[in-house]
Design a protein around this nucleic acid. Structure first.
Length: 293
DNA sequence: GTACTTGTTGAACG
DNA sequence: TCGTTCAACAAGTA
């Protein structure tokens, strides 16, 4: 489930690899995965790569068209693999962890292949076909809310984001449980189901506690919990995506480092209490009944 | 075979 | 209209 830290890692990884490159072809294996006319950016030069929330953008300068941007959303099973030109085996893999990332590409999950003039390729894999790539005019990015229907909230890792800003935005969702509220991309951008549970744990706040019952001390703790969980996600996924896997290419890093996510009926890493799982707004939510009382 | 999982959208409530 | 819940999407796992 690629969230902010995974997309950030992809951004950083791709920056050193494809900026300055020219697109030679785009092969679309699943039409629903690519929205827009890909022929408009054949020959275009990659000039910038950015992230906003869970959205990844690749800015392009085409030969004859206005500046364009490829906007990616990986949803829950999207994966990006950069395959350097022949001779090199150094693959860069980001996003949803699967077992087959070191095998032959394209594979059965490959939806789009972006090819560059130096023969290297960028594979967009997406097991469940929820993700997409949208081609839009760079000038229209803000109007189209980066390809989403809603206007994204603030970036949690930017310096301008403060605990007061978090509090102000959360006040719009007074009756919602904390964990559900921080999942809302209009409140803040980039937190998904994994980091929402983790942030509540680090903040020592029960995920089911209502926003209206929070006091300033808890807003500050929640703020720190969000930042810390996201930063540790970036740290463990940071240098190379191979860190997402064990030797057999199996487990995602979050299973290893998470305090509570997916750890139902196991011991809390802090106090040994059994981790509980509940459902909030239809989503699995994990917490420690002792640490987060 | 059935239930469950994920992020986001849009329908359907009171 | 607003706030909130729920189904839908797809495909794999338990």
């Amino acid at each position: 489930m690629p969230e902010l830290p995974e997309v950030e890692t992809i951004k950083v990884g791709l920056q050193s690899k494809i900026i300055g490159q020219f697109i030679s072809d785009i092969e679309i294996l699943n039409p629903k995965s690519f929205l827009g006319d890909s022929s408009k950016v054949i020959g275009a030069k990659v000039i910038n790569i950015w992230r906003r929330g869970k959205v990844l953008g690749i800015d392009l300068i085409p030969k004859t068209q206005n500046p364009k941007t490829l906007v990616f959303h990986l949803k829950m099973s999207g994966q990006i693999i950069y395959q350097p030109s022949s001779g090199s085996t150094n693959r860069f893999v980001g996003g949803h962890p699967t077992k087959d990332i070191f095998k032959t590409l394209p594979n059965k999950s490959t939806r789009v292949i972006i090819k560059f003039q130096d023969q290297s390729k960028l594979y967009f894999n997406d097991q469940r076909k929820f993700g997409w790539i949208k081609l839009i005019n760079t000038a229209e990015l803000e109007t189209f809310n980066h390809g989403l229907k809603i206007k994204l909230g603030p970036e949690p890792l930017e310096e301008s984001f403060t605990w007061q800003a978090l509090k102000n935005n959360l006040q719009k969702r007074k009756n919602l449980p904390v964990k559900v509220a921080i999942l809302d991309q209009e409140i803040l951008a980039g937190v998904g189901n994994i980091y929402a549970s983790e942030a509540c744990f680090i903040a020592k706040i029960n995920p089911n506690k209502k926003i209206k019952d929070l006091v300033d001390r808890e807003y500050k703790l929640l703020f720190k919990g969000i930042i810390k969980s996201l930063q540790s996600g970036i740290r463990y996924g940071g240098s190379s995506m191979t860190h997402f896997f064990d030797i057999g290419g199996n487990k995602g890093y979050f299973l290893k480092y998470a305090f509570v996510f997916n750890r139902e009926n196991t011991e809390c890493k802090i106090c040994k209490t059994t981790i509980k799982k509940i459902k909030l707004a239809g989503r699995g939510t994990y917490y420690c009944p002792t640490c987060q009382s």
